[in-house]
Design a protein around this nucleic acid. Structure first.
Lengths: 251, 251
DNA sequence: CCGAGTTGTCTAGTTCAATAGACAAGTCAT
DNA sequence: ATGACTTGTCTATTGAACTAGACAACTCGG
């Protein structure tokens, strides 16, 4: 059947966007049906061969689509058994001791932090106020992507006073953890002073980094961390994939 | 330079969506800058070679992107001269004699109508009311894509009483014009009885047919046409690409 | 008219998406 | 344990996307 339909005449036309690969169209299509709630958490998807037949497509193409959904954290495949929907969210407690690696490890997942970019810049009014600096003071800005079990959870922009932590980027890149980076600077214990939570939607950049579509909901978490003496260390603006995380605030 | 960067490490990373071809990303990127109003109507884009250099991409890839923008009606290229932005809209008068082919021809463009699909169905409450039939009566439903100079302008769903126009689809497919199709049935003059205009956004299907992105604005034009004697002929629900058409209502 | 600048077209080569088929490795119910 | 079913991996092939370079055709200002 279908001896090489050159992308245009078959009945899979309804998905085919010009310039978008077939596997991506299938992945997006399935993401929709999952996000719309057609499958419960843990539900089993049809076998790859059946999906392939339904779309009129090779099984390998479906496998690529499923790999994409896996990377987005929407699905988990088990060899010999099947592919299962995964819409449960990581519980992320917000408290005095809010450390990504610890939280994720405690939940039984593999934590990962990657530096996506960094630069020195002049403190904005907001950053200066948070860190107790004068506007225009030299600050280090880090863009960090965090993942649990290789699934992106958040992107965060962190500012630190450059005077105190001049090589924060270089050190983070080596140690791959904010806690360990601060430890390198002799900060053994630090605490969350305040956290401000709002919400929004992904822009194109965050969507790419988080492996989300554009216009998916995100939790915006602004925060300030201080030393035991109350001296400001860093202020952060994190964007959490709301499809994958729930913030827990104990009272 | 750039001895084949295998899609991932160069500075064009910020556009690269997984599973989306480079030319499509560039086309979408330029569409944004045009729609956001960065270029006036008729403004000249940079030469292809310059755009290619800016994106770090081969000129052929830029040409493909520009071809796409041309197909979307956003841009017009002139050999030896350049590529020019085209954000003016087709003036589409709504009146008693509202005929796509005539209006487009009068504006100096080449009109085209293609039947995208058709079927017999049972008249809904709304369609029955418009056509003066009983609910559930047999009606012919046509899906027609209309274009001016090969640029898609509208998709329209038209319903006709099947009792009177049983083979409307077959005849339209041959004659490629509603006017000529009705002429075949002996309807020489027909008139627009009423027109109802609202607005909305493209869904995935209409976006594909109109070569628009999803969530672009559309004008929704519902209408009823009647014979000289006032007998209902057809009711239509057209979706016009608001980026390319302006409806003109004389009073 | 000339020449610089711009789009159109052609050839060629490399990488990757998608197809096709086969088989290994794992799960699960009977 | 057996066997049906499902995912993982391998090889091979075809066509499209992208790159590279060259040249033709065309426009426009000096």
């Amino acid at each position: 059947m279908l001896t090489r339909t050159p992308r245009g005449s078959s009945d899979k036309n309804h998905l085919l966007a010009r310039g978008v690969m077939l596997w991506r169209c299938i992945a997006d299509d399935y993401e929709q049906t999952i996000l719309v709630g057609k499958y419960d958490n843990g539900a089993k998807l049809p076998p790859e061969s059946e999906i392939a037949a339904r779309y009129g497509v090779n099984r390998h193409t479906v496998r690529r689509a499923m790999a994409e959904l896996g990377a987005r954290g929407l699905v988990r495949t088990e060899r010999g058994s099947g592919t299962f929907v995964r819409t449960d969210k990581l519980d992320y407690p917000i408290g005095q001791r809010t450390r990504f690696s610890e939280i994720v490890a405690a939940a039984g997942h593999e934590a990962e932090g990657r530096l996506q970019g960094h630069r020195h810049e002049l403190a904005s009014e907001e950053v200066a106020a948070h860190l107790g600096l004068t506007v225009g003071a030299d600050v280090v800005r880090l863009e960090i992507l965090r993942a649990a079990d290789r699934v992106p959870i958040s992107v965060a922009t962190t500012w630190l006073p450059a005077a105190r932590y001049p090589d924060a980027a270089k050190i983070f890149r080596r140690l791959r953890s904010v806690t360990r980076t601060l430890d390198h600077y002799g900060i053994t214990g630090y605490a969350r002073k305040w956290t401000r939570i709002s919400a929004g939607f992904t822009d194109a950049v965050d969507a790419g980094r988080l492996r989300l579509s554009v216009h998916r909901p995100i939790l915006v978490v602004e925060s300030l961390d201080v030393t035991g003496d109350g001296e400001p260390i860093m202020t952060t603006r994190g964007r959490f994939a709301a499809d994958r995380v729930a913030l827990i605030v104990e009272s």
